[in-house]
């Protein structure tokens, strides 16, 4: 498609129309140059080409003139209904449908704060589940195999590791 040639009729100095075959890619680059969509290197190349080629320059002028005629010249229009009638339909709809609820910033901040704790809780849950299933391949060397929470009795917590042959009992101060 890019190799397609465009036949543009360009008038010569006597006003006769001459058919020109410009490469599509080059033609669209003239337009991109007009719209400031080219890199500085490409823009320089096109500027040089426009200086040398009257055919390309003629097309550039047409595109430039039509662009400048259109930009900023949109016709002003007004809603063809009264303010009250137009608003009444909107009002009916917004009263019928609830406002979309999006997490307010304070909740988003709380989520950010809670994420590390949630991750830690998930890790502990994973370790506990390994222990519960007691799969040989999943047994960790330095893992907490038994967590005995005797809080109901005296608030002390016992950690026991079979691999290390070690038991740690944590007693909160005040006991």
């Amino acid at each position: 498609m890019l190799a397609e040639k465009w036949q543009l009729c360009l008038p010569d100095s006597s006003g006769r129309s001459l058919k020109s075959n410009m490469n599509t890619d080059k033609i669209l680059k003239i337009q991109a140059y007009l719209d400031n969509e080219l890199s500085s290197d490409e823009a320089r190349q096109i500027a040089t080409w426009l200086d040398r080629d009257p055919e390309a320059r003629s097309l550039f002028h047409e595109l430039r003139d039509i662009k400048s005629a259109i930009v900023g010249n949109e016709v002003s229009l007004a809603v063809p209904e009264s303010r009250e009638f137009y608003w009444s339909k909107i009002k009916r709809s917004i009263e019928a449908e609830p406002i979309e609820i999006v997490h307010p910033p304070i909740f988003a901040r709380w989520l950010r704060w809670a994420t590390p704790f949630a991750a830690a809780a998930a890790t502990i849950a994973l370790l506990v589940s390994f222990t519960a299933f007691d799969l040989p391949g999943l047994r960790l060397k330095v893992a907490v195999h038994e967590i005995d929470d005797s809080q109901e009795e005296d608030s002390s917590i016992t950690f026991h590791s079979q691999a290390e042959g070690m038991t740690v009992v944590w007693i909160p101060s005040g006991h």
């Binding site: 543009l8 009729c9 003629s58 047409e62 003139d65 039509i66 400048s68 010249n73 016709v75």
Partner: peptide
């Protein structure tokens, strides 16, 4: 596909020349 526009002659005049802004807007629309 640009069947018609491809072969259109280049327009050698400025469409906004000699027109009131209001008139130009109506024509553009």
């Amino acid at each position: 596909m640009g069947g018609v526009e491809r072969q259109m002659p280049v327009v050698n005049f400025n469409p906004s020349e000699g027109l009131e802004r209001g008139e130009l807007r109506v024509r553009i629309d």
